[in-house]
């Protein structure tokens, strides 16, 4: 029916077409936009984006705006920057998490406009874990049969689920620690409060007693 070469071409076309059909939103030229991804460790994240600049002459958005660059910053749960770079108006960023938790992905244009500037339309697609795997590439590289590929996908999914479960344990542990800490704080505080009240009362009484005696009021 069709040659292998034609098939590669198809995959390529689909891959290129992909991002324009993604979700998009608008930001001002100087605005900073952040997204949070709560992910387990050793998880792959792929961010695809495309920026279009508002064109006041046509009232639409320019499909390509070579002048615009996007600054992409990725921070891990300990607030350490794992990626910070300026990319062109269209790009694909991928990173692997090393600590489980909330990863923050921030984007802002390198525009020098001080007062708002014009509007930007940002197409964004964030794929995490097994969604980030491009099975088109896997097929080409490893020459798997349909069934093998399907099983491969199942394995990837199970792998992701296991990671998520491990992460869940980790978070549950943190949650419990917080609760234990609250519990002990409440306990210790009530003990301290009682002690302070008793000491305060005793001191007040003694102090006033000596005072009244000195003043010969009693």
């Amino acid at each position: 029916m069709f040659s292998v070469k034609g098939y590669e071409f198809l995959i390529f076309v689909i891959f290129v077409v992909d991002i324009s059909s993604a979700l998009y939103f608008h930001i001002a030229e100087t605005e900073r936009k952040c997204f949070i991804e709560e992910i387990p460790d050793e998880t792959n994240v792929i961010v695809n984006y495309k920026v279009e600049l508002y064109d006041p002459r046509t009232g639409g958005f320019m499909p390509s705006s070579p002048g615009i660059g996007m600054h992409v910053e990725v921070r891990d749960p300990d607030d350490k920057t794992i990626l910070s770079r300026v990319y062109s108006s269209e790009g694909k960023i991928s990173f692997t998490s090393h600590t489980p938790g909330e990863h923050v992905i921030c984007m802002y244009s390198n525009s020098s406009a001080w007062f708002g500037g014009s509007q930007l339309r940002v197409h964004l697609d964030i794929q995490v874990g097994e969604h980030a795997i491009n099975y088109g590439e896997v097929v080409q590289k490893e020459k798997l049969s349909e069934l093998q590929l399907r099983i491969r996908q199942l394995l990837d999914q199970v792998d992701q689920i296991t990671k998520e479960q491990n992460y869940q344990r980790y978070r549950e542990d943190r949650f419990r620690q917080t609760s234990e800490s609250t519990n002990s704080r409440v306990l210790w505080w009530s003990i301290t409060q009682t002690a302070v009240l008793i000491l305060m009362g005793a001191w007040q009484m003694r102090h006033l007693k000596t005072f009244f005696e000195a003043k010969k009021l009693v």
């Binding site: 077409v17 993604a22 936009k33 997204f35 949070i36 991804e37 964004l124 697609d125 964030i126 995490v128």
Partner: peptide
């Protein structure tokens, strides 16, 4: 191509903002 584009023109965007 058209068939695949129709089928593959699907999107799931999970976003936390």
């Amino acid at each position: 191509l058209t068939f695949l584009l129709v089928v593959l023109n699907v999107f799931s965007s999970e976003i936390t903002f």
